[in-house]
Design a protein around this nucleic acid. Structure first.
Lengths: 117, 117
DNA sequence: AAATATACATAATTTTCTTATGTATAGGTA
DNA sequence: TACCTATACATAAGAAAATTATGTATATTT
């Protein structure tokens, strides 16, 4: 382990939920593994969602009625598809507003001159 | 408590350290309370750093040799000024690169069309 | 006189990850 | 054939990084 190349612990702590909501809003019905691959693709390999973070969060969202699931077989392999409920769509809109405000705040801090212009 | 108006827990979880490093890089010597106020100002009230998050983090950064401190009296009130060490400046550059990559990733997810253009 | 602002600090708790582990099928390759 | 990687789910233990609550003390405003 070359510690000098080790990345700091993830910056996206706290952002995973809105990220998943956004994915489901844009792409509709998705299964967990598909989400991890799509995020990896979209971010050009930057964001790698771990399974230990993903699945418990999806289960929580289901409990809260934010998403609903359908389990299907793909050949002999199970896929659990998630999609936003009506309440989930409302929640997603709120979460997206918060995300945009948050991203603007980061811009203000990281690019103060540009942000003030 | 009107739960429907409750904000979700903070998105900046995980970003606080790079935020503080950026502040110190831009403004030099600062004390803790000043950092909270400046972040609140810069972000137009969006990001409110709690003391319970701030002070333990500053102490950790000092332990790690990222920042160094000078305590001064302002009238009868103490102020503990923090500034980046040489190692801290290096670390800040790395952290800023990571932050920019992270922010770009968020853009890709939240504004897929714009980001792809 | 009381409330708010300034200025630090820390403990208990909660949230939210990482890491490790487990199960199982499918496909590629040495 | 055996092994590795990818696909696809799940959960437990532990760590990281906040929130919330509390404490001390001075200064300013109402």
């Amino acid at each position: 382990m070359y510690y000098c190349f080790m990345k700091k612990s993830s910056l996206y702590k706290g952002c995973l939920e809105p990220i998943l909501l956004r994915l489901l809003k844009d792409h509709g019905r998705m299964y967990g593994y598909q989400m991890t691959q799509m995020v990896k693709d979209i971010t050009k390999g930057e964001l790698n969602i771990t399974e230990g973070a993903l699945y418990p969060l999806l289960h929580k969202l289901e409990e809260q009625g934010i998403v609903e699931t359908e389990t299907e077989m793909n050949g002999n392999r199970m896929r659990k598809y998630y999609s936003l409920t009506k309440a989930g769509k409302k929640q997603t809109n709120i979460a997206m507003d918060e995300m945009k405000a948050f991203m603007q705040s980061l811009e203000y801090i990281v690019n103060p001159k540009i942000a003030l212009g």
